[in-house]
Amino acid sequence: MSHVLEIRNLTKKFGDFIAVDNMTLNIGEGEIFGFLGANGAGKSTTINMIASLLRPTKGEIVLLGKNIVKDSKFAKMNTGIVPQELAIYEDMTAYENVSFFAGLYGLRGAMLRERTEEALAFVGLGDKHQSFPKNFSGGMKRRLNIACAIAHLPKLIIMDEPTVGIDPQSRNYILQSVRKLNEMGCTIIYTSHYMEEVEEICTRIAIVDHGKIIAEGTKEQLTSIITDTKEIWIGFRADGAISIESLQGIAGVTAVRQEENTLKIVSKSEVNNLNRIIQQLIKDQVEIRSVEEQAPNLESVFLTLTGRNLRD
């Protein structure tokens, strides 16, 4: 996997305050890379440096093999940013907005028209060319915000909380678009403090706190930091004997205990053995009432590692 983006020893200070602290990170081609962190953890500062909006105090960022400070034009041509806040002109039509920003990337003439139309169609605003954003709903504005960032077909798209404050429908639409963009070959950096979104679409995640990357990896790798076990709670009807021994023989299961009407089975999280457990219970003629899997999620990883809640 070649690296689209390499961040080396990146540091950003605002006076005495260190917003990003000696961060090193690689993002490979075709990834949807998530930054997870509380407000003020340094996510936005990092993103702004990648998008050339802020100058690093120390360290370097390399995009597609070129330093973004030295080859700033190249870096900017290949980057698209979807800012956290809406960044569109209210007094210009949807078409004019996209066309203006795409024009700044050197597109012109027929090419510009084509790309503008494509971008608008992509976000589902193909029929709203001549409408003014002030008549748009929140979700439509968010979509236009994305269209403005993708018309020049960047290799790297940075999305800073693109789903803040919109209805579930638009949110799904946006998440789908992110996936579609990814399938088309874009590498995506995604921040959100909706844990579920990050868990759902990101291929790799970095947990950021106080300007440092505390841990990074896939969702599974991150949860395995805390523990490599999961608990399966099975509720059953309290009659008949339950053979705990037969369950303990199942691959991955490390411990079984019975608490009144609930069986608590501790198992290695990477082994998928729920089916076998249930089969065994059925064979033993146990009447199952409920099955519940207690696996750690990113929220608990974050809480354990940093001692803070994401939405602090």
């Binding site: 930091i225 805390i226 523990t227 490599d228 354990t304």
Partner: peptide
């Protein structure tokens, strides 16, 4: 001191005034 699956976490925490911006 907490030994996790892949990490060891040691936390020292006080209930004092703290500070909004930590200066290193």
């Amino acid at each position: 001191v907490r030994v996790l699956n892949k990490f060891i976490k040691a936390v020292v925490e006080d209930n004092g005034v703290g500070t909004a911006k930590v200066v290193k």
